[in-house]
Each structure stands twice: as structure tokens, then as C-alpha cells.
């Protein structure tokens, strides 16, 4: 029992970590990413609103959420949402909190992308008397969004690495399952190392995907 690494124990825990944990990590990351990118775009547009009060509130919300820990926000939602009648299951709570937290990062990314569209594009749209909504949907966003995709992809990678936080509200991702296995057998080396390797594989493949997107965007421009 004193071997530093035990292969048979490693193979015993592997299916559970991959089958249960990995699937949960991917599910939460994908759903929360979609939520983050949609809400983030909304926040970015509110941030640019002509109404000063609207843009100020959007700014304050973004900065507050960005500056405080995701874990505490997760606890906030977990304990407070039921009080106000929102009885989400833990996975949904996790997706919503992750989505909102990362929406504030996405908002800044969109903002930078929008600001990178040359002024002349706005002026040309004005010269053609395009209505404002049409300018946004047909001129500005189609130019801004492809450029920000790689940066958004990088945030998805960050999010991936934060899914283990969900174990604090009882949702077991890769690390959650690994820690569970470890505590049952009083042996953490194998499950936690497997979890680490899985994360390396995941974030490496995700970064390849992001780089591929970067090249595609580079070509499109």
C-alpha cells in the first residue's frame, strides 16, 4: 500500500472521474459560456447607452462582479435565491452564477471589440441615414464580433478551470468526483493527479481551438 503511485487504484477511479466528472465540467462550461456571451453583449450595449444613468449602473455592476470572488457569488446565489422563490437545482445555480460572472468579462471584451471598429464606419452609416438599430446589427457588430471570439474563447478556458468550485454546492465535476474517491479510500494521489492531467488535456485542446479561431479571424479580416 505504500507505493507512491498505484496503477490498479488509478484505473479503478478513472471511469468515475471521466464518466461523471468530466461530463459535468464540460456541460457547465458550455452552458455557462453561452449564457455569458449573450448577457455580456447585453451588458456591453447597456454600458454604451446614451442614458448616463444606464451606462453608470452597467459599469458599477460589471466592476462589482468582476472585483469579487466567484465562490462568494456562488454562495450568495445558493443561499439567497431560494429565499426569493427561485428554487434552482445546484447545477442551474452554478450555470447562472458562472454565466453572470463571466458575462462581465465578456462585456469588456465586446466593448474593446466595438471600440476597435473605426469611427468612419459609424460616420458612413450616418451618411447613409441608417437607423441606429440597423447600424448596430448590420454594420458594427458583424465587424466587432469575429475579432472578439478568440478573447471570449480564452475566458471559456478560464471558466473550465473554475468548475471545481461547484463542489462546494454539491455539484461534482472532475475534481469533485476525484476528491470524493480520494476521501473514501484515504488516498488522493491518483484521483487528484488524474484530475490535473484531465485539466491539462482540456485546456490544451481548448487553447488549440482558440488559436485556430485566431487564425481564421486573421484571414477573414
Amino acid at each position: 500500500m505504500n507505493d507512491v503511485w498505484q496503477w490498479d487504484y488509478a484505473f479503478e477511479v478513472l471511469p468515475g472521474i471521466v464518466g461523471g466528472g468530466l461530463w459535468m465540467t464540460i456541460k457547465v462550461t458550455v452552458l455557462a459560456s453561452i449564457l455569458a456571451y449573450v448577457i455580456g453583449l447585453g451588458l456591453a450595449l447597456l454600458r454604451r447607452s446614451d442614458l448616463r444613468i444606464v451606462s453608470m449602473v452597467a459599469w458599477a455592476v460589471i466592476e462589482f462582479i468582476r472585483s469579487t470572488p466567484l465562490l462568494v457569488q456562488l454562495f450568495f446565489a445558493f443561499y439567497v435565491l431560494p429565499d426569493i422563490g427561485l428554487l434552482f437545482d445546484p447545477v442551474t445555480t452554478g450555470v447562472v452564477v458562472f454565466g453572470l460572472h463571466y458575462a462581465t468579462y465578456a462585456a469588456e471584451v465586446y466593448r474593446a471589440g466595438i471600440e476597435a471598429v473605426p469611427r468612419g464606419q459609424w460616420e458612413a452609416a450616418t451618411a447613409l441615414s441608417l437607423p441606429r438599430s440597423r447600424t448596430w446589427t448590420k454594420v458594427i457588430l458583424p465587424q466587432a464580433i469575429p475579432r472578439v471570439l478568440p478573447a471570449l474563447g480564452n475566458y471559456t478556458i478560464s471558466m473550465l478551470k473554475e468548475t471545481p468550485l461547484l463542489l462546494t454546492i454539491g455539484v461534482l465535476d472532475i475534481v469533485g468526483v476525484a476528491a470524493e474517491e480520494g476521501s473514501q479510500a484515504f488516498r488522493y494521489v491518483e484521483p487528484i493527479t488524474i484530475a490535473g492531467v484531465l485539466f491539462l488535456i482540456l485546456s490544451y485542446s481548448a487553447s488549440l481551438l482558440t488559436r485556430w479561431m485566431e487564425r481564421r479571424v486573421g484571414i477573414a479580416r
Binding site: 478551470k161 473554475e162 463542489l167 480520494g182 488522493y188 491539462l200 485546456s203
Partner: peptide, 20 residues
């Protein structure tokens, strides 16, 4: 250290490293 998760690292140093 960038490619793994902070929680993995905490668990690893806390529970796996002592065995080594």
C-alpha cells in the same frame, strides 16, 4: 500551473503531496 485548476492544485498540495 496555468493549465490545471487552482482547486486541483490546492487538493494536490494538501492531500497528495504529503504522501510523497
Amino acid at each position: 500551473w496555468r493549465g490545471t485548476s487552482e482547486v486541483v492544485q490546492l487538493y494536490w498540495v494538501m492531500f497528495a503531496l504529503p504522501i510523497l
